[in-house]
């Protein structure tokens, strides 16, 4: 399981970074999205992988080893929402820049 997820995170990261380095603004937004997934999964994985143990406790004595780590989950939850806001903001900046500069190059003008 771990090896699969690690490879998956690696491929998501590589695709994201490749797109981040491209000259077109839309490529960058997709790259940010992919990199976002990779990072969220990476943080989530810091809590180790545990199947069938959601952190929903029962009142009374708690056996902490029987539950998945809730801390990375809470961190990732807000990160998901914030990454949506980031995508939206970037999208609007991208569209505005396209309108103003007449090009979708990240520098605001075509490379010489």
């Amino acid at each position: 399981m771990e090896i699969i997820l690690a490879i998956g995170i690696g491929i998501l990261t590589a695709s994201g970074v490749w797109l981040l380095l491209r000259p077109r603004t839309f490529q960058v937004i997709i790259g940010l999205g992919l990199l976002g997934y990779a990072v969220n999964l990476f943080i989530f994985a810091m809590g180790r992988l545990k199947a069938g143990a959601p952190p929903l406790v029962h009142p009374g004595k708690v056996d902490t080893s029987a539950y998945a780590d809730p801390v990375p989950q809470a961190l990732v939850l807000t990160a998901i929402v914030i990454s949506f806001a980031l995508t939206a903001l970037y999208l609007v900046v991208l569209l505005t820049a396209r309108g103003i500069t007449g090009t979708d190059h990240v520098d605001g003008h075509e490379a010489e």
């Binding site: 590589a14 990476f42 810091m46």
Partner: peptide
């Protein structure tokens, strides 16, 4: 660059995931 970045993340993720957790 992208391959290196991906490789790094994969190795790091694997290294953390495979050791005992719990804090």
């Amino acid at each position: 660059i992208a391959t290196l970045a991906g490789l790094g993340m994969a190795v790091m993720a694997f290294a953390v995931m495979t050791r005992p957790g719990g804090s």
